[in-house]
Design a protein around this nucleic acid. Structure first.
Lengths: 231, 231
DNA sequence: AGAGAAATATGTTATAAAGCACAAATATAA
DNA sequence: TTATATTTGTGCTTTATAACATATTTCTCT
């Protein structure tokens, strides 16, 4: 088990692993916890104190914010091997978002005290986090305009393309490789569940995609991109 | 002039200045440009390559994104002494936003190559940027939900409180210390100009504030906060 | 397998906010 | 100054989207 853990960590933490010297690697290895989360299980909640840098080894995670009247807004989606859960610690805040697993997921938890300590000595690691945060902030700016200014069809199209690019397709080359409830699709696209359902079936009858439960098969990506861009 | 410049830089760059050793300070001092921008002048534009870390010494700056049909979305507002313009460089991207001066402004421009070089050696400086970015990202998440889920009155109330907290008041203790066009107020609050005007005059007749051109006098902050929170 | 719960689907109604038109006031420039 | 453009203010209309109601299908658990 511990031997197994080592292999996992080295293999999966690749992005930051290569930035660490052997003694730093040792420190991280010894303090990393591997946790498993069941489908729909909460990973962290709003107002909680951030304690870990999390790295998703397996599965899919949503980071969302509770909105008004129970309407959640999904802010970011994570896939292997991405890092999350550290922002609030750096900002010296409690979490302003929540995270939950879409499906059974394996997540490495590295104590933020360790990370902070390493950053103070290791500039390449510091630069890694600067880059991550800078990229996320840019995406967030882009997203804000999408969510506030586009109409429903454009917002849903945007989400579908995002999912397609983020999680890819199954062997058939067109079924999006993540199965979201209509409610999650709505929360991602800033609309009500019924409008997500309605708009999805419009796209169906327009030959843009087919729906089989939660499996979404994109038939006409060009058309989808056109809707995303123009309206 | 050069002696004058030195004093300005030391005084104004205080936040990062104290993190630098004498030789680093020298390097920054020698490479910093001080630029003046007129009212409404563009500071950088979308798709341009980021070259400078900017620090606003005097004035007020908006960072915004061109949206659909010419509807801009103001993402952030800057006041002395804040840093901006560096995110895209760290993310290795062109600018996704534009920046313009609300009023006559003085801005220090430090080449990003210098900053990057310093970060690689100076961990406290790296940590400063990590904190800045982490804070901005948290605010952005918060903002997204505000802009997408609140109704017009709540969004405008939110903007007014934000302006009040960010720029403070004049000597009278209630006139917001920034004068925005209705259009800017609209772009800040994700609404059309006519709705900003309309809602503002509603607030007027409800005794929440008085309007004198672009001077906004907040009479009932409690009520405004209530609208921001609930409806 | 069957009961209950949850998710999906679809039609109808209500409403918030945009769009448009135009007037008045203010700023800018010749 | 006068002339022109820009900004602000108001009323009316239209439209996008939420809210509601109600089936129907699909999951979940005993």
């Amino acid at each position: 088990m511990s031997g197994n853990k080592e292999i996992e960590i080295e293999e999966y933490l690749s992005q930051i692993w290569t930035l660490l010297d052997p003694s730093e690697q040792e420190l991280v290895k010894d303090s990393t916890l591997i946790k498993h989360f069941k489908k729909n299980e909460l990973i962290y909640r709003e107002n909680e104190d951030p304690k870990f840098l999390m790295c998703i080894f397996k599965g899919k995670v949503k980071i969302y914010k509770e909105g008004i009247g129970g309407r959640n807004q999904i802010m970011r989606l994570m896939s292997p091997v991405q890092y999350f859960g550290y922002r609030a610690y750096f900002a010296n805040e409690a979490y302003v978002t929540e995270a939950a697993a879409f499906e059974c997921s394996t997540i490495a938890m590295i104590p933020m005290e360790i990370i902070e300590e390493l950053i103070m000595k290791n500039n390449a690691l510091a630069m890694f986090f600067i880059r991550e945060l800078a990229t996320d902030l840019g995406e967030s700016d882009e997203r804000t305009v999408n969510l506030t200014q586009k109409h429903i069809r454009g917002r849903l199209a945007d989400s579908l393309i995002f999912l397609l690019e983020k999680y890819g397709t199954e062997a058939d080359g067109c079924t999006i490789n993540i199965y979201l409830a209509r409610e999650d699709l709505a929360n991602l696209s800033n609309m009500t569940t019924s409008n997500a359902i309605r708009t999805l079936s419009s796209f169906c009858s327009e030959g843009i995609l087919t729906v089989d439960g939660r499996r979404l098969k994109i038939l006409d990506e060009t058309k989808l991109r056109k809707i995303n861009k123009f309206g």
